[in-house]
Write a protein that binds this DNA or RNA. Structure first.
Lengths: 182, 182
DNA sequence: GTCCGCATGTAAGGCGTTACATGATTAA
DNA sequence: TTAATCATGTAACGCCTTACATGCGGAC
């Protein structure tokens, strides 16, 4: 009787990490504190409830690694269903909405693709990623062309920053594509 | 008797827009729907409660622009206290934590600086922004140098993306600086 | 034997999300 | 007159934040 969750960004990060190797909640906190994945909370009030939810959903399984004294340590590992969900989630097509609202989620998806989805899915992702950005950049430039003259200096520069960010990401995807295909 | 809020990103966006000219909630929704500021919700369930909170905090004031039939339209304008708060908020120094966790908030701060803070504050912001990024990039590169060999391909590429993003932002800030000082 | 790091959790609060609800005005 | 758009709001829900609480283990 699992409920239907859609993965929050944090849950995806947790599930992706656990899919690489079994981890405890504390391990996860360490990762989030000490690596550039650190866009995430690392706070117990976020990690432990998330772990509980993911377990209730049936995507991970906990095994109490009690030192023989009974010191509780919950070691989580991914289940078959979790593996399947992860695979499906990472194989989703890249939409325009993803580009606009969930760029971080997209990068996270990509970061976990090794060993979960095949090379074709990875390549497809990068292609879609780049072309969806291109499409959005066209929209932005159209808007920008009109607004440029009436925007104040800082407003204009901030807009340029956004545009350049997108362009950089598209370039990155194309370079990544070349590297992967070598 | 205003409560103490710290501006959420959405509230900052709202306050910044209203500071430029009086707006209704619906106007705000339109802006968020139709401009690249659209990283924000535009949903009534976000805008209207936020407006209420900001008004309760004493930073904006509403005037009912009833068409003579009494059709309710709340037109909000910024108060003196709101103006002061905005000025102070935009003048805050740029911290390392801002760079890591609140990049979007930083860009938003910058986007609204025209007419609110002077040129010196704007220039200071950009300088701090660039140098805090530089500092963080050094950290990331140190981490990256160690991790590169053990990271799987996609993980490595995702990290590179993060790094390039930061580097691009620092470059942007330096270009912006030059433009502003001309 | 005391302090610090390991390790897990709970409680209150804030705020954004989706979905729903309501009514006025304008254009076809 | 019917539909679309203007315009404002509420309710349920999810999830993150901050702060607090608890206990084991090892090092000195």
């Amino acid at each position: 009787m699992e409920k239907k969750y859609d993965l929050s960004t944090l849950s995806l990060a947790i599930l992706g990490l656990i899919s690489q190797r079994p981890l405890t909640g504390y391990d996860l906190r360490k990762v989030f504190r000490t690596t550039p994945l650190g866009h995430f909370s690392s706070s117990p009030g976020a990690i432990y409830p998330a772990l509980k939810r993911i377990e209730e959903a049936g995507w991970i399984r906990s095994a109490t690694t009690g030192g023989r004294t009974g010191h509780q340590r919950m070691l989580y590992q991914i289940t078959a269903r979790g593996q399947k969900l992860l695979q499906e989630h990472l194989s989703q097509p890249v939409t325009q909405e993803d580009i606009i609202w969930h760029m971080d989620g997209l990068m996270l998806r990509f970061a976990f693709m090794d060993g979960i989805v095949g090379r074709e899915a990875t390549v497809r992702f990068l292609r879609e990623f780049a072309s969806q950005i291109d499409a959005h950049v066209v929209d932005l430039q159209r808007y920008f062309a009109e607004a440029k003259s009436i925007l104040p200096p800082c407003g204009r520069l901030a807009m340029e920053n956004g545009l350049q960010n997108y362009e950089m990401n598209a370039q990155w995807a194309r370079r990544a594509l070349q590297e992967l295909q070598r």
